[in-house]
């Protein structure tokens, strides 16, 4: 089970992910609503894994991913975005993302992906 930081600009998606991850026995150590807050929280909380929305105001998910990987090359980040933005995958993978989930998502698959990334 992991200590997870959830990054998404909508409270609805943060709450949904929190519920899914909590039901899988994970510990939600923090939440952030944009990339800048994500980096600050990552430095402060040192989570085992981050779920990161791609499209966010101010600092977007890809920029935040790059900043987190620069600060901690071993960081485990799963990117999370809406249908139709799958083209971002290559960019995210190139930037060091370990996994990718597409909204809308289903709880069992999200938990499976989180488990895979945590155990990798």
């Amino acid at each position: 089970m992991g200590r997870i930081l959830i990054v998404d600009d909508t409270m609805f998606m943060r709450t949904l992910l929190k519920n899914i991850l909590f039901s899988g026995g994970h510990d939600i150590v923090g939440e952030a609503a944009d990339g800048a807050e994500a980096l600050a929280k990552y430095r402060e909380l040192k989570p085992d894994l981050v779920t990161m929305d791609v499209v966010m105001p101010n600092v977007n998910g890809i920029e935040a991913l790059k900043a987190i990987k620069a600060a901690d090359p071993a960081a485990k980040v799963i990117m999370c975005t809406a249908v139709g933005q799958e083209q971002m995958v290559k960019l995210a993978v190139k930037s060091g993302a370990r996994g990718y989930i597409v909204k809308p998502f289903q709880a069992p698959k999200v938990l499976e992906e989180v488990k895979n990334v945590l155990s990798a």
């Binding site: 799958e86 995958v89 990718y100 989930i101 597409v102 998502f105 069992p108 698959k109 999200v110 992906e113």
Partner: peptide, 9 residues
Amino acid sequence: AIRGGVLIQ
């Protein structure tokens, strides 16, 4: 290509 919202890499 995608299953349950998870992209199959």
